[in-house]
């Protein structure tokens, strides 16, 4: 399977069709929730359902983006690298839907409510900062910006780590009585970030011994 995907990428048609596949697949959650909303199948509290749904998918796409590098290193999936930007932009896409649905369906764009949420609720503030970070990364994700920023581009995009931690905190702060689900997501993030720490430590000791 892995081999065949790598082989697929040797031909232009293969690359093209795989790109389309990975471009369309992340739209499935949106299609699913849109269909459920259309058929009035979102339960008694559709606002809460939709906001939570987009929030969870933001986190999942963020983790997918963060999984690209470990997968490349551990499984040799070099072809995955070319989709990292798309996964990152989908993270931003779902984060925007999350924020927009919160502002529309929960706050109804009432200025007094928005002002209060943004000034008084730590978990909203943390989530909003994470979203601002994602916007910055999204804007600078184009080829032009990569060129313009040069070596600073990578430094700027290390912001994805604090963003992931803030997003996790935003999620964890909503717990009322059960921490099972949040714990599951936190463990995944721990693996994704832990891999980088281990990799960095190993490389440092190699450099020192050389």
């Amino acid at each position: 399977m892995v081999l065949s995907i790598a082989e697929l990428h040797r031909s232009k048609v293969g690359r093209r069709s795989f790109w389309w596949l990975l471009f369309l697949l992340p739209l499935l959650p949106l299609a699913y929730i849109a269909e459920a909303a259309y058929s009035l199948d979102l339960g008694a509290d559709p606002a809460q359902t939709i906001v939570t749904f987009f929030g969870i998918w933001t986190l999942r796409f963020l983790f997918l983006t963060l999984a690209v590098t470990p997968c490349r290193r551990l499984f040799g999936w070099g072809w995955l690298q070319r989709y990292r930007r798309m996964f990152g932009l989908y993270t931003l896409f779902y984060a925007c839907l999350h924020l927009l649905s919160f502002a529309t369906f929960i706050l109804g764009w009432r200025a007094d409510l928005i002002a209060r949420e943004l000034s008084e609720r730590p978990y909203i503030i943390v989530g909003f900062i994470a979203w601002l970070g994602l916007v910055a990364l999204g804007i600078t994700s184009t080829r032009g910006w990569v060129r313009r920023l040069g070596r600073h581009w990578q430094q700027l995009h290390y912001l994805v780590y604090p963003i992931a931690l803030l997003a996790m905190l935003h999620f964890a702060w909503l717990i009322r009585a059960g921490f099972g689900e949040v714990l599951g997501y936190a463990l995944v993030l721990l693996v994704l970030l832990g891999h980088r720490v281990v990799y960095w430590l190993k490389r440092r000791s190699r450099v020192q011994h050389a």
């Binding site: 909303a37 339960g43 008694a44 509290d45 559709p46 529309t104 369906f105 929960i106 109804g108 409510l113």
Partner: peptide, 9 residues
Amino acid sequence: PSSLFNPNQ
């Protein structure tokens, strides 16, 4: 129940 067109806030 709230609906998407009217959050009933």
